[in-house]
Simulated assay, not measured.
Amino acid sequence: MTIDVTAERVVPLPPEQVAAYAMDWRHDAEWTQGIRTAELTREADGGGFGVGAEVTRTAHFLGRRIDYVLRVAAYNPPELLDMVSVAGPMPMHVTYTFDPHPDGTLARIRVRGGEGGFYRLAAPLLARQVRGNLVKDLRDLQARLVERR
């Protein structure tokens, strides 16, 4: 069984502002559930953050420490950041999109994961937990951005 979970929220700010914060790996631990640290461990081919860059994250999920590396597969600010895991306990694909909305920005996070060991056995619980975390992530993203205004 694979996991495919999406959460979305309308954030009352322009897409450029929401995406600039959310797509910056230096903010990952501030608004993303469970992430303790995030570090740019490989720059994009042209330098800095972009396609080919890799971010190493340390997180806690379901009581376990998880270390994983996400490689940027697509980067088109302010609309899209698409990342795939290249190291970690299970295959993972994380997509952030930010679309204009009459009330600001429709922010969406989609997480897809493959089967792997413990996670295969816990897939139904895992999907519920991921969805809950994504909902909280978007809530916290909005709170961070609104308080920074």
Rank of each mutant, 00 (worst) to 15 (best):
44 A>H: 06
138 L>P: 05
119 Y>G: 14
65 R>V: 15
33 Q>T: 11
30 E>R: 04
127 A>E: 11
146 V>L: 15
82 D>W: 03
129 Q>E: 14
72 V>A: 15
1 M>G: 15
112 R>F: 00
110 R>A: 09
46 G>Q: 03
80 L>C: 04
128 R>C: 03
79 E>D: 13
25 W>A: 12
42 R>W: 07
52 G>W: 06
23 M>H: 05
139 R>N: 14
116 G>A: 15
87 A>C: 00
96 Y>L: 11
128 R>Y: 04
111 V>A: 08
144 R>Y: 06
98 F>C: 11
71 R>T: 13
135 V>T: 11
120 R>G: 13
133 N>S: 04
53 A>W: 01
91 P>Y: 00
59 A>H: 04
138 L>M: 07
60 H>A: 14
35 I>P: 03
2 T>Y: 00
104 G>A: 09
113 G>V: 03
122 A>H: 02
110 R>Q: 12
105 T>L: 11
103 D>R: 03
125 L>F: 14
24 D>L: 08
130 V>L: 11
121 L>M: 12
129 Q>T: 15
58 T>F: 10
102 P>A: 07
71 R>V: 15
104 G>D: 04
75 Y>C: 09
134 L>N: 03
78 P>G: 05
121 L>F: 09
130 V>T: 07
2 T>R: 08
39 E>I: 00
61 F>V: 15
48 G>R: 08
100 P>A: 09
142 Q>R: 10
15 P>T: 05
102 P>S: 00
94 V>L: 11
100 P>V: 05
3 I>Y: 02
4 D>K: 09
5 V>G: 10
6 T>S: 13
45 D>W: 06
59 A>K: 02
115 E>M: 14
77 P>R: 01
131 R>E: 10
20 A>S: 12
142 Q>S: 14
12 P>C: 10
28 D>T: 12
78 P>M: 06
144 R>L: 13
64 R>F: 13
59 A>W: 01
59 A>S: 14
66 I>Y: 02
63 G>C: 10
144 R>D: 14
79 E>S: 13
143 A>F: 00
32 T>G: 00
88 G>N: 00
54 E>A: 12
83 M>N: 07
5 V>I: 13
14 P>Y: 04
71 R>Q: 13
69 V>F: 01
46 G>V: 03
68 Y>E: 05
8 E>I: 05
76 N>I: 02
19 A>P: 04
109 I>T: 06
6 T>I: 12
126 L>G: 08
84 V>D: 10
61 F>D: 08
20 A>T: 07
51 V>Q: 08
114 G>Q: 05
48 G>V: 12
42 R>I: 11
92 M>R: 01
96 Y>M: 04
85 S>K: 00
47 G>N: 07
117 G>P: 15
129 Q>N: 12
114 G>I: 11
44 A>T: 11
145 L>S: 06
121 L>G: 10
63 G>D: 07
96 Y>T: 01
114 G>C: 10
149 R>Q: 15
27 H>W: 09
128 R>A: 14
133 N>Q: 09
97 T>P: 01
80 L>T: 07
85 S>M: 03
18 V>K: 00
118 F>D: 01
105 T>Q: 05
73 A>T: 12
87 A>P: 00
32 T>Y: 05
61 F>Y: 13
82 D>F: 02
101 H>A: 12
146 V>N: 02
54 E>Y: 01
116 G>H: 09
124 P>K: 10
15 P>H: 02
136 K>C: 03
148 R>H: 14
78 P>R: 03
120 R>W: 08
10 V>K: 01
34 G>N: 05
